[in-house]
């Protein structure tokens, strides 16, 4: 019943209006454009991607990229086209080169460093485990005492 009504509505609707047209002609091109432009930085409003920005230059660049996709250029070629004009600044994913090794490796170097430090600490702590109890009863009592009002530690 519902779908019948829906169908009727669609038919009725299409009598005076149509299915909206996508902004680009070829959906495959648009999908690739969206994917590519999503990783490129707009130069005018500098903290938006090329895909999201409404700046005129962003529109022009989307047009260029669309044409390049239609010409069957590879992602690499399209990115090179932009980088040769605007520099690495347009890439939200910084390319791996000597100046960015630290950037890409840094987090994992930190992770390894943290892991080693963790291992060392854990081993050391394990040795302490036998030697002394954790918080003594005396300490617990002191905490309770300090947390009650009007007590000043002298």
């Amino acid at each position: 019943m519902n779908w019948l009504f829906f169908l009727l509505l669609l038919v009725a609707g299409s009598a005076w209006a149509g299915e909206a047209k996508p902004m680009g002609d070829d959906p495959a091109v648009e999908a690739r454009l969206k994917q590519l432009a999503g990783e490129l930085r707009c130069l005018v409003c500098q903290n938006q991607t090329l895909a999201d920005s409404n700046a005129p230059l962003a529109e022009d660049l989307r047009r260029e990229v669309r044409e390049m996709i239609a010409k069957n250029m590879s992602d690499r070629e399209i990115i090179d086209f932009l980088v040769s004009r605007y520099g690495d600044f347009v890439l939200y994913r910084p390319p791996l080169k000597t100046t960015t090794v630290l950037l890409w490796a840094g987090p994992f170097v930190l992770l390894i460093g943290g892991g080693v430090a963790l291992a060392v600490t854990l081993r050391r702590r394990q040795r302490v485990i036998v030697e002394n109890a954790v918080i003594t009863d005396e300490e617990h009592r002191r905490v309770e005492r300090l947390l009650s009002p009007g007590v000043k530690e002298s």
Partner: peptide, 13 residues
């Protein structure tokens, strides 16, 4: 008019 040479020259503003 279309801003293509601008793109070739890397003009952004």
């Amino acid at each position: 008019a279309a801003g293509r040479v601008g793109i070739d020259y890397g003009v952004y503003g």
